[in-house]
């Protein structure tokens, strides 16, 4: 597993697409911090969220405020992780480079497991990069500022919730990638499925549907006291999706004629 991570990181660091993605992410961070503006993907309609956005607009964007602001824009990270999924797993499935590994003593479970693990590690690094670059950019432009009460505990909880919601979105895309061997289908599913759930959840008052709205969860993970919303339940739903979809993806891959 360690060898697989080393190898794929080596490959990523030698791929132009990786540097372009990281450059665009930095550009996004710099523009957002400079403009002191937030944005989200999808539909939101909660008073707590509106309140959070108002507070952000009232305060200067020092490093801590920027961190909070960026936590509400984390769904944009989906777009900065899509190329990583394509580079790590998509290329292998579409160009059949899995053959070089599967025919030389790597089992399908090991292969699938290592690809998924590498993606988890790389997206974790991408989260780190996203928040660190935002924090540092704000420190340069507006100063570090003073940490609000319980900031770091909140920050860790937020990143944890976001990361699990994020993986729930991507495992659906990975599953579709494994079934179809198509990057396009996978990318479309990652973009469209969360949006459909997000819009449906906002339009229809279905109690359980909001817990499948991973995009909402990612964007507002900082807000702990959302009405009619339980974060533990959200985490259970997200984890459930990760387990079911990863099992489905593996079974599809295991029985596929390659």
């Amino acid at each position: 597993m360690v060898n697989a991570i080393r190898a794929d990181l080596y490959r990523l660091f030698h791929t132009k697409g990786f540097y372009i993605t990281q450059f665009l992410l930095i550009l996004f961070v710099v523009i957002s911090v400079s403009a002191e503006a937030t944005g989200t993907v999808g539909v939101t309609s909660s008073d707590e969220i509106t309140g959070m956005q108002s507070r952000l607009q009232a305060n200067d964007w020092d490093s801590y405020q920027t961190f909070i602001a960026f936590s509400s824009m984390a769904s944009f990270l989906i777009y900065f992780c899509l190329p990583l999924l394509v580079m790590i797993a998509g290329y292998d499935f579409v160009h059949k480079s899995y053959k070089n590994q599967l025919t030389s003593g790597v089992s399908r479970l090991q292969y699938f497991g290592s690809k998924y693990l590498i993606f988890i590690v790389v997206t974790a690094l991408q989260f780190l990069f996203y928040y660190t670059s935002a924090f540092l950019t704000a420190a340069v432009t507006n100063g570090i500022g003073t940490a609000p009460k319980d900031f770091w505990i909140n920050a860790l909880q937020t990143i944890g919730i976001q990361f699990i919601g994020f993986q729930a979105i991507f495992i659906i895309g990975l599953c579709i990638l494994v079934i179809t061997f198509s990057n396009v289908s996978s990318v479309i599913s990652i973009i469209v499925i969360p949006l459909i759930i997000n819009v449906s959840s906002a339009l229809f008052n279905i109690g359980w549907l909001k817990y499948f709205d991973f995009q909402f969860g990612i964007n507002f993970a900082w807000v702990r006291n959302l009405p009619d919303f339980s974060w533990p339940v959200f985490l259970c739903f997200s984890s459930g999706v990760i387990i079911v979809m990863s099992y489905t993806a593996y079974q599809a891959f295991r029985h596929k004629s390659l």
Binding site: R11, H14, T15, K16, G17, Y91, H95, K96, S97, K99, N100, T103, S104, G105, V106, S107
Partner: peptide, 21 residues
């Protein structure tokens, strides 16, 4: 079998490698 495959090397259909490397 998986273990035995470690003693094999193969090129099936077309050779595949990473294009940007």
């Amino acid at each position: 079998w998986v273990k035995a495959l470690r003693r094999t090397g193969s090129v099936i259909e077309v050779p595949v490698a990473y294009e940007s490397l």
